[in-house]
Design a protein around this nucleic acid. Structure first.
Lengths: 235, 235
DNA sequence: TCAATATGAATTGTCGACAATTCGACTTAG
DNA sequence: CTAAGTCGAATTGTCGACAATTCATATTGA
């Protein structure tokens, strides 16, 4: 309701896309809630033109759905969609791991080992566990993805899929794999990459993601999440 | 330059997205050419608002690039991008074939066999070879993709990747696999799916696409295509 | 009481105009 | 003659207003 602080840069549609993405991921805009163009425009202090361009982008990111003459809505929480996303991730990140095994530099390999050591240290100290297991996990995956050097793959994964995953993350905090187990799997994947074993790297990455998906599925089946109950009213 | 016939339906940005996509694929808007908003708006008889929304969408489809305060341009022909796309296709359609092997119905399997028989007949009669080898090929792939029942995968493949592939197709007419060989590979893939052998289906699909990519790569290295020479002036 | 319809407020779709920025042509100094 | 700078036309970015559609309310008739 409050007008948001007006800062940042570039062009308005870009800013709005970033802000709105963040608001959806952070739950400021509750899942399933209607998006009112006049209200949002007033809140951000912009006209509806740039806002609508941002909405088009959000739609392609899979964060909102739009219906002609009816309007936009934040997507509903939906277990099938999330599992579909993980299946797609499995295929794409598996390929990323394979390509990384061929293309990554020795320096990058060193950096990745250091990353995992840091992660391990965080876990051993039992400090900042959430940060280590969340951002650390995503850091590792993103580096592998970029090491693939495949621009199309990078774009789809980092923009489309990860936006969706981060959005769901708030609602799946309980049903994630053991961070120590995840770290062991990361280490195995990195070993395969360092040894330039593309086949193995792909296989391990796919198992790693598939395992997380299974866990998520099992946990969600016992939750209200599949009924779209997010604990927040949809306005 | 001429104003285009004004028909169709739904909402203007949707129409414009479709039309512009077609114009880029068909080469009406040459690769690398600048897109003038005032000119296009006048040609389609719309204002710049809906047109800009369509441009945002085309950007996410990878058909144009936009720079703030500078404008939009049809993407350049670029061999690395096309090979990246094929690599991504390999991962995604491989997964689609695996999922299809699990989920496809017997009726759909029958339809696919019929499709391949039709394709075979076209080739034997040596009639309409181009149609058979092009649309027939795409038909087969699209059916497998849809049989995966994975909405995210379907969306990325049919919208993002295939738009790119169709765009490049005009410029790669000479460097495509032998249609009879392709048909044999399709048949093997379908057999695997019909036998519910997901592993094999994925493997064969990946080889099938990888083979096409290799051919493309070899052919393009001998062409001016890698230098961005499209035979058309840029604007 | 309920169903169907009519009405009007609110929202989305579209437009034309103004502001800000870019880019090319021309001028000018060295 | 070249390079830098200046100026202006054209293009992109943004805005506010109007048109078209939807949705909720209320009204009417059975």
């Amino acid at each position: 309701m409050n007008k948001v602080t007006t800062l940042k840069s570039a062009t308005l549609p870009d800013d709005l896309t970033q802000r709105l993405t963040a608001e959806i991921i952070d739950g400021v805009l509750p899942l399933g809630s209607k998006i009112s163009e006049p209200e949002l425009a007033k809140r951000y202090g912009v006209s509806r033109g740039p806002l609508r361009e941002a909405l088009v982008k959000l739609e392609t990111l899979g964060l909102i759905t739009r219906t002609a003459n009816v309007g936009a809505r934040v997507v509903e929480l939906n277990i099938a969609d999330l599992l579909d996303t993980f299946t797609l991730r499995e295929a794409m990140e598996g390929m990323a791991a394979r390509l990384a095994a061929e293309l990554i530099s020795e320096a990058e390999i060193e950096q990745l080992y250091t990353l995992l050591e840091d992660h391990q240290a965080h876990l051993d100290a039992n400090q900042d566990e959430h940060y280590a297991s969340q951002n650390g996990n995503e850091d590792f995956h993103l580096r592998i993805i970029h090491a693939s050097q495949n621009k199309k793959l990078i774009r789809v994964l980092t923009q489309d899929l990860y936006a969706t995953i981060r959005m769901y993350r708030r609602y799946t905090a309980d049903s994630r794999p053991d961070p120590r187990q995840a770290l062991r799997e990361h280490k195995a994947i990195l070993d395969a990459i360092a040894n330039r074993e593309g086949d193995l790297a792909e296989l391990l990455m796919r198992r790693h993601i598939s395992r997380a998906a299974s866990l998520l599925k099992k946990a969600m089946l016992h939750n209200s999440i599949s009924q779209g109950n997010t604990g927040q009213p949809s306005q």
